[in-house]
Design a binder for these strands. Structure first.
Lengths: 206, 206
DNA sequence: GTTTAACCATACATTTATGTATGTATGATG
DNA sequence: CATCATACATACATAAATGTATGGTTAAAC
């Protein structure tokens, strides 16, 4: 039954949404194209029409995760905040709070952090995804460099180390949350944890 | 070819060692019992003799990871250190430095953190492993409670929150390191990062 | 020194997912 | 309105992994 272009595009979206859910639940390897298709209300025929194979679905999902994240930070960096470190802190808190409401994003993060073996057909994407991550790390670093230029940080402070420090901490919170979303009250704890953490960096001023 | 008991036990160990390597490289789902067997220099017959199936190998590996870790902390907690927070900090640093030399442990951590989908046959172990993790979290908490009792921490400091904070940070470092062991100079960075982090908690004294 | 059973290899049956080939109905296009 | 390509569904062929059954050799027990 030939569909209209809008319907076709919807099928594609349905497939991607279904894939996120299935992948994040069972991992990429254990997920079947058949159950993804069924979860989207179609058959494997539709899958092979829209995508080459499972790997291509995987890659399409990563784009859908990373692009908006980078755009959000880039937009935030445009603003001329007087206290870059406070701006960064608030951004970190906001990222966590936003995450709670966006179940799609949660599942996609679970998928790429914890359910991707990056072996076999997926192996080539390991480096590619790592490079994308490095890109967002550089964006974080720009906050710290701005702060240092504005004299808001100790002159001895190492932007590279601070960036890594923040990245580690954020990733840790992410993992603890994603590992058990119901047991981790992120709305309450994330601000507390992040505020507590950023107090360290305030020390660097002196 | 009937082997002696010692030889039999060695094949079992060989199989577990091979499984760590294969699992951590390809993920549990994509790993074949046949390649594990071949990597251990035997056939699938040996695998099915020593283990029920792939799941049982998986579980055996978790025991081998968790037990020594808990024992190490328990032993450390016995010592009567005058500054529990310093003791905890040094423990954290030591954990990271030890990890660099122990490739088996690295691979096992990669396996359980990043390559375990916990679906299908592995699903029942998700809660079990989470409980084991909660156990080690409680051990970390005991350092902080000791510090608070000794008046080394602010009376308002929340041990639960501090424990979570440290756990998040440590996990973050672990992930960043395991994600790219060659690119992350842990011997150099881990002490710096952890020292920087624990300065926050020192603030809690005031 | 037999006998037994542990330890493993080999062979086979079954299952399950993938890829592809083909069928088919319909929206789009002239 | 004829036809053509799109958007799928269906069917099949292939491959790969699992579980099991069976066979063989030799430590170990008596």
């Amino acid at each position: 039954m030939r569909r209209t272009k809008e319907e076709s595009e919807k099928t594609r979206e349905d497939l991607l949404n279904a894939a996120v859910r299935i992948f994040s639940e069972k991992g990429v390897a254990r997920s079947t194209l058949d159950e993804i298709a069924k979860a989207a209300g179609v058959t494997r025929g539709a899958v092979y029409w829209h995508f080459e194979n499972k790997t291509q679905i995987f890659e399409a999902l990563h784009e859908r995760l990373h692009r908006p994240f980078v755009d959000m930070i880039l937009e935030d960096l445009e603003k001329d905040h007087p206290e870059p470190m406070v701006q960064l802190r608030d951004l970190c808190i906001q990222i966590m709070l936003d995450l709670e409401k966006d179940e799609q994003r949660q599942q996609t993060l679970i998928l790429f952090f914890m359910k991707s073996d990056y072996s076999g057909d997926l192996a080539p994407y390991k480096d590619k995804h790592r490079e994308k991550k490095a890109e967002s790390m550089r964006l974080f670093k720009r906050y710290i460099e701005k702060a240092k230029k504005a004299g808001k940080l100790n002159t001895q402070a190492d932007p590279e180390l601070l960036t890594q420090c923040i990245s580690c901490f954020m990733k840790g919170i992410l993992f603890e949350y994603l590992d058990n979303p119901e047991g981790f009250d992120i709305e309450n704890k994330a601000p507390k944890l992040i505020n507590l953490f950023f107090n360290t960096l305030e020390l660097e001023k002196n």
